[in-house]
Write a protein that binds this DNA or RNA. Structure first.
Length: 589
RNA sequence: GCGCCGGUAGCUCAACUGGAUAGAGCAUCGGACUUCGGAUCCGACGGUUGGGGGUUCAAAUCCCUCCCGGCGCGCCA
């Protein structure tokens, strides 16, 4: 929404040069570090089109703008423009004081629908720590897309099908387990996980177990009542556990249709592929040749034993989603290791002439690394991939619980007034927020490095830092009504300070960050803009500690009211920004 | 071997997709009229952007090539 302020500048230059305004606004950037100015325009291209040198054009434009009252300085090939604080305040607060959230809304996606497939864990297993990536990137994208005007469908494509369940049922029967055994266990998902480990080990010793497992897999596929019942039971207890963790994270879904739902819907897709002559048999397996689309190897559709593979399942599911939602975009938030798989089945969709083929996006991300202090003999301490098979798996729930414990301890130490149920609520907001922000603050294709001490810092580029800035603003708001119970409406033109202007400019830059986040499916872009904004706010508020003329709560109730309008607006935007990337914003902490 | 990520300050990351003197946070050092929340702020120190070539007025960014790390590459998902 910086364009509210730059509009006159853009119009004057466009008129002077006889080019469309959009050609000018596209050039506007933020000046480099030590450079005076609020926005900058590099003159290279404009000068070339006009047949002059960039520095000459910058000088010419500055002279022209001087007659309009806009302060612009040519610095080499750049034109640097400085806005008057009062003008920034009246222009931006004129809009934002009434509707602060417009800073974080766009109409990019108005009338459009986006499906977002994220989290998608396997049932009968715990949510491991690494599931946080898909879950929270997906959650953030869902909220960001909504802020951009999209109608969003959140889809949890559960891994609720496969041979593992035949094994699990076989194990259940073999151990003669009952509902009471499961119900009586302290942790039902662990109960199922242990059962799976036991039966897998047994299968290694005894070939008969493998036969039993296949037998139960077959019965499950055939719709056998007992097998189905047990499978449903496993699914129910898993979902119960998942939903507890999702509640902690503030995540929800519109669709929970898992792989099992599509089990009987893959046949038509396969026959269509065969009917169009796109398939062939290769070493007994059914494959699609994708060499016409530049692929080196064909994609596998069916195993030699006739079993279907997940490319087919993804296609069937996508057909179903297209039928239900007619999406404009469909995102798959899945780790980068599966990039080839997505390229392949997207390509198959293209070969099939699916109307949605170019609307599919694989949103890949890097893996989670944890700091390992004590890796064992001969190994240096360092970043290590979280164990998923051997070794102890770090559960998402356990990481969140430890983060909450650490947050609770800091709150107890720093703010003794907060006790009981409120302290618990805030500890969850801060602890979970710290972990989530650590996951979203840098580009999603990077590997994420997680260390409790780093994520839970209350200074630096962390979730708690942002939440603290928010709480500080809330605190000032609370005190304002005591100090000025009958304050007039704020006259925004009283905001003449440089630090106040910088806060407003940082807020004005949020919308562009939101748009870039949505266009590149990159929550970290907004996260960075929020850090920049919170930094300006903290700087402004702290100036009040050094210089009492800068205080929000000052003797002049008119000036105080004007400054409070900026406090309110900052608090609302910061709070909303945090919500969009999936963090809570407590009012005190 | 092929493909995809990544390599930027001691550490963790940015750089608005080709623009200014490559910026932040942490760590280290030095400051801030005792504070509307100091869980803050200001400053200093710290760089041959993995190496080498090329394109361009301009390259961390684009092209070529080599090196290092991670992950994929037919019957798991």
């Amino acid at each position: 929404m910086l364009d509210l302020i730059t509009a006159p500048l853009v119009a004057h230059i466009a008129a002077h040069l006889g080019v469309p305004a959009s050609a000018i606004s596209a050039l506007i950037t933020t000046p480099a570090k030590g450079v005076q100015g609020d926005v900058a325009i590099p003159c290279y291209q404009l000068a070339k089109a006009r047949g002059t040198s960039p520095p000459a054009l910058a000088t010419e434009l500055a002279a022209m703008l001087a007659t309009t009252g806009i302060q612009a300085t040519p610095v080499g090939p750049f034109l640097n423009v400085t806005f008057a604080p009062t003008q920034v305040a009246t222009t931006l607060l004129g809009v934002l004081a009434q509707a602060p959230l417009t800073a974080l809304r766009t109409s990019l996606g108005a009338g459009k629908t986006a499906c977002i497939d994220f989290s998608s864990p396997n049932i009968a297993k715990h949510l491991a720590f690494h599931h946080i990536r898909s879950t929270m990137i997906g959650n953030a994208l869902a909220r960001l897309y909504e802020a951009a005007g999209y109608r969003v469908v959140r889809i949890n494509f559960l891994g609720d099908w496969g041979t593992a369940f035949g094994k699990l049922i076989a194990g259940w029967k073999r151990d003669q387990l009952t509902l009471a055994d499961l119900a009586g266990s302290a942790d039902k998902v662990t109960f199922l996980h242990d059962l799976y480990v036991r039966i897998s080990n047994a299968a290694k010793q005894d070939a008969g177990v493998e036969v039993e497992a296949r037998h139960w897999s077959k019965r499950l596929e055939d719709g056998d009542a007992e097998a189905r019942h047990l499978w449903q039971l496993f699914k129910d207890v898993s979902l119960q556990e998942f939903k507890r963790v999702y509640a902690l994270l503030g995540v929800d879904f519109d669709s929970w249709k898992g792989e099992a739902f599509y089990e009987d819907k893959m046949g038509p897709v396969l026959s269509e592929l065969e009917g169009k002559g796109l398939t062939k048999l290769d070493q007994g397996a059914l494959v699609v040749d994708l060499s016409s689309l530049g692929f080196k190897k064909p994609a596998l559709l069916k195993r030699a034993d006739g079993g279907t593979l997940y490319a087919t399942r993804d296609l069937a599911a996508c057909d179903d989603r297209w039928k239900d939602y007619q999406f404009d975009r469909s995102l798959y938030v899945v780790d980068l290791g599966q990039a080839l798989h997505f390229k392949e089945w997207f390509a198959i969709a293209r070969l099939l002439g699916r109307p949605y083929a170019d609307r599919l996006r694989h949103i890949g991300f890097g893996i989670v690394l944890m700091w390992n202090d004590d890796p064992g003999e001969g190994q240096q301490p360092g970043w290590a991939r979280v164990a998923t098979r051997k070794g102890k798996v770090m559960l998402l729930r356990e990481v969140l619980e430890e983060a909450i414990d650490r947050a609770r301890a800091v709150i107890a130490e720093k703010n003794e007034e907060i006790i009981g149920e409120e302290r618990e609520r805030i500890a969850i907001a801060v602890g979970v927020g710290a972990v989530v922000f650590n996951d979203l603050k840098s580009g999603r294709t990077n590997d994420v490095k997680f260390r409790f001490e780093d994520a839970l810092r209350f200074d630096g580029e962390t979730g708690p830092y942002l939440q603290f800035a928010h709480a500080r603003l809330c605190s000032i708001e609370r005190k304002f009504s005591e100090a000025h119970p009958h304050a007039p409406n704020g006259d925004h033109s009283l905001l003449t300070r440089e630090d106040e202007k910088q806060v407003l400019l940082a807020i004005a830059r949020l919308r562009a960050a939101l748009e870039r986040s949505v266009e590149s499916d990159e929550p970290s872009t907004l996260a960075s803009a929020l850090l920049a904004m919170a930094g300006q706010v903290a700087s402004w508020l702290t100036n009040g500690n050094h210089d009492h003329d800068a205080r929000i709560l000052c003797a002049d109730s008119g000036l105080s009211a004007a400054r409070l309008a900026l406090v309110r607006c900052s608090r609302a935007c910061l709070g909303e920004g945090l919500r969009l990337i999936g963090l809570q914003a407590p009012e005190r902490m």
